[in-house]
Design a protein around this nucleic acid. Structure first.
Lengths: 184, 184
DNA sequence: ATCCGTTGTGCAACTAGTTGCAAAAAGAGT
DNA sequence: ACTCTTTTTGCAACTAGTTGCACAACGGAT
């Protein structure tokens, strides 16, 4: 129930076409809400038919032709409503932890390499976030909007920091572990 | 693609009926992979028909009758395969961060209360984890299995710690923010 | 002119998870 | 014996996300 609201947010930040949205979902917004272009187009159609957004008047309504959308007042209202409404955090779904638990039953053979891979992925993501922080949040940027954005970015940074630390610790633990139960 | 493997893991830890599994998914396993009883029954049927598990011989194969399952060798093998296979971490989907970003566009009215609510929820979860740590991971428990389980628990603890810290920080930030843009 | 890769839009089918409801058995109370 | 509740199992319909592919326009290269 969040994709439409993610799109409304993105369109409020800047009216865009489907493809532009897709690109932005690969960067900033996608860092905590990813979506494919098919999802986005489908949802744009739905949002338009519900009167939350409208296509910018650019004539050509044919296929393969760029079409930009902007948010209508009804869309902004719906977004405000949704933002303010209470929502329970949904239980995390983490495959890696699940696999680790499985490996306690069937042996740790093979999983260590993937832990290492995840570690570098998280380190890379962390570096990317820190670069953004350096670039976009120097001193001076201090409007309420900037502070909110920075707050969000810091969540990303802290999360990735947690993962890199935890994975490092996990790998150290593995060193100390006896040979995998699968191959004694 | 992970629910069947979560179930296999749970059944390896201890053969169980659908309802028992459901209860365990509400506690330990559900901390990082939740599932409803309907999902579980459906998946049990599938796993049985694929030859990964079998019902323990308890006669009565009728409805409303308790039926326990155990993992067959093929199931264990499949679980081992899946555990060792590389998997990309999937991009996080976090509604709260999304709402915060939306609130930078439509105003922060209303969201603060929910941040506070989330904070207490995370604090509660953290307390629960720490209790488990105290209870189940005192000194002495030091088999490879124990260490893996503890590692997983620590991920939970650190994650909840991150959220409580970040939410606390966010709420402090809100104090310093001017009156919500939605109501000036 | 026409072929060809790129940009941009979109449909359809599939997979996974959620919600709502119901039916069979077992035990408890009267 | 009989209803009534609880336990346990399950079906069916819905929602959200994923995968695979197709089709139109545009801009350059031959």
């Amino acid at each position: 129930m969040s994709l439409p609201h993610a799109i409304l947010t993105a369109l409020l930040e800047k009216p865009s076409s489907g493809l532009e949205l897709t690109r932005r979902f690969d960067r900033s917004i996608g860092y905590f809400w990813s979506a494919t272009h098919q999802q986005i187009y489908r949802e744009l159609g739905k949002l338009e038919s519900e009167g939350y957004i409208r296509a910018l008047p650019t004539e050509q309504p044919t296929r393969g032709q760029k079409k930009s959308y902007e948010v209508l007042p009804a869309g902004r209202a719906e977004l405000a409503r949704w933002t303010a409404a209470a929502q329970d955090p949904k239980p995390p779904r983490d495959t890696l932890l699940l696999r680790l638990r499985a490996s306690a039953m069937v042996g740790t053979t093979g999983i260590e390499a993937d832990l290492r891979r995840h570690l570098t992925l998280h380190q890379r993501q962390l570096a990317e976030y820190e670069e953004i922080q350096q670039r976009d949040f120097g001193p001076g940027r201090d409007t309420p909007q900037d502070r909110l954005q920075h707050l969000i970015l810091r969540a990303g940074i802290d999360l990735e920091t947690f993962w890199t630390r935890w994975l490092t610790h996990a790998l150290e633990e593995f060193e100390r572990l006896p040979a995998p139960e699968g191959s004694p």
